[in-house]
């Protein structure tokens, strides 16, 4: 079953590797993954869709939250959230197919982002199923190239972001118990 995870992470080298490592080390396949900076450039927002046993969903979220670079991991699979995907489609168009393509594009709310004598570049945004349907529809007109963004999601519930406060350095490290002489 596909699980949608939203992550707020520190924008640091290696953060992505740690997150994908949690999934790949357990043999879970990533369906899609998007990353971009948030308003705060020190943080990134990721949306990951991963194919996972439903009973392991909580475990995944906990594993993600355990990572030091992860500020917040949220399961959006069944919560109130908006999920959208974008596809960019290049389709060859002939004089006969041009009108049909444009009609279908309009039906799906897709925009023409490039037009040449050879064909069109189309941009379609929406829920993943709608984007898939759009791609299927355009395929009927001939060979196409598609790049999909993967799902980006935003939770519609407000979630309190719990962060660890700063602590004094070298206070929590060594020397908690009595020192051995060595």
């Amino acid at each position: 079953m596909l699980q949608t995870i939203s992550l707020l992470v520190e924008n640091k080298p290696g953060a992505l590797m740690r997150i994908t490592g949690v999934l790949s080390s357990r043999g879970w396949n990533i369906d899609s993954l998007t990353v971009a900076r948030t308003i705060d450039p020190a943080q990134s927002r990721m949306t990951i869709v991963v194919d996972i046993d439903p009973e392991l969903r909580r475990q995944v979220i906990k594993q993600m939250n355990k990572l030091i670079n992860v500020l917040q991991a949220t399961d959006l699979t069944e919560s109130l959230a908006v999920c959208r995907e974008m596809a960019l489609v290049r389709v060859r168009a002939t004089a006969e197919t041009r009108t049909g393509i444009l009609k279908d594009a309009e039906m799906y709310g897709a925009r023409v982002v490039d037009a040449t004598g050879d064909g069109f570049g189309l941009e379609c945004t929406g829920p993943a199923e709608k984007v898939e349907e759009f791609i299927d529809a355009i395929r009927n007109f001939g060979d196409i190239d598609v790049t999909r963004s993967g799902i980006v999601a935003v939770s519609m519930e407000s979630r309190k972001l719990r962060l660890a406060p700063p602590i004094p350095a070298a206070a929590a490290g060594n020397g908690a118990e009595e020192l051995p002489s060595c």
Binding site: N65, L67, I68, N69, L163, A164, A169, A170
Partner: peptide
Amino acid sequence: SPVSTIHLPGYK
């Protein structure tokens, strides 16, 4: 200069 604080906001 000695570091005075550690801040790991995601380490809870």
